[in-house]
C-alpha cells in the first residue's frame, strides 16, 4: 500500500517538488526584503520559517484527493477497502516523507545558515518535523472537506486549527532562545500529533464517504 502511494506521488513531480521549491523561494526571498538589516536577519527569521512551512504544507495537500476523486479511483478504493482510514494514514505519511521531511531538513539548513548556531538549529529540527506532520494532517482534512470546491475553501476552514500550533512553535522558539526547558513544547506537539494522527484519518475517511454517497 505504502509502495503504491509512494510511486504514485513520486511520479507526480510537480506535486512533491512544487511545495519544496515554494518553501525554498520564500526562505530565499526573506533576506532580500531586509537588505539593510543583514546582521539582524535572525529577528524575523523564525516567523518566516514557520509561515513558509505552513504554506508549503498547504500547497502539498492541494491535490491529494482531487485526481483520484475525478478519475473514480477514490470511490473504487473506498468500496474495496473496509479500512479506508489506513489508506489515508499511508497517503499522509507518504506526503510527509516526500515533502514534509525534506522541508524540515531544509528548515534546519536555513536556520543554520542564518543564525550560525548549530544547537539552536538542531533544536528547531524536531519542532519542524512534528509540526509539518500536524499541518499536513490538518490540510488533508481541509482538502477532504472541500474535495470538489477548490483548496482555498479547505485552507480557510482548517487554517484556524493550525494557528494554535503556530503559537506553540513561537513559544517553543522563545524557550530555546532563553535556554529554558523547550522539550515540554516538543512533548506538547507530540501529544497533539498522537491524537491527530489517529483522529484525522478516521474523520477524513468519513468525510470522503459523505462526498461519495
Amino acid at each position: 500500500m505504502f509502495k503504491l502511494e509512494f510511486l504514485k506521488l513520486r511520479k507526480k513531480t510537480r506535486s512533491w517538488l512544487g511545495p519544496i521549491l515554494v518553501f525554498w523561494l520564500i526562505m530565499l526571498a526573506y533576506p532580500l526584503t531586509v537588505e539593510f538589516l543583514q546582521d539582524k536577519l535572525e529577528i524575523g527569521f523564525f516567523s518566516v520559517l514557520w509561515i513558509a512551512l505552513l504554506i508549503s504544507m498547504m500547497l502539498a495537500t492541494e491535490d491529494i484527493f482531487s485526481e483520484d476523486y475525478n478519475d473514480g479511483s477514490l470511490e473504487q478504493t473506498l468500496i474495496k477497502n473496509p479500512t479506508f482510514s489506513i489508506i489515508i494514514v499511508t497517503k499522509i505519511f507518504t506526503y510527509w516523507l516526500l515533502i514534509g521531511l525534506p522541508i524540515s531538513i531544509l528548515s534546519f539548513v536555513f536556520s543554520l545558515g542564518t543564525t550560525e548556531n548549530l544547537s539552536l538549529s538542531l533544536s528547531i529540527l524536531p519542532l519542524a518535523i512534528i509540526s509539518s506532520y500536524i499541518f499536513l494532517n490538518l490540510f488533508v482534512l481541509g482538502n477532504a472537506l472541500s474535495l470538489n470546491k477548490g483548496s482555498v475553501l479547505g485552507a480557510l476552514v482548517t487554517m484556524p486549527l493550525a494557528l494554535p500550533v503556530l503559537i506553540v512553535l513561537g513559544k517553543g522558539l522563545i524557550a530555546i532562545q532563553l535556554d529554558i526547558n523547550y522539550q515540554s513544547f516538543i512533548f506538547l506537539l507530540l501529544g497533539s500529533l498522537s491524537i491527530i494522527i489517529v483522529a484525522i484519518p478516521i474523520v477524513v475517511s468519513y468525510v470522503i464517504k459523505a462526498h461519495l454517497e
Binding site: L141, P164, V203, A210
Partner: peptide, 16 residues
C-alpha cells in the same frame, strides 16, 4: 452533504 461535512468540521474544531 453540507450538513455531514459541517458536522465533522464542528467536531474537529471543538478542540479549540
Amino acid at each position: 452533504k453540507a450538513d455531514k461535512l459541517l458536522s465533522w468540521l464542528v467536531i474537529v474544531g471543538a478542540v479549540n
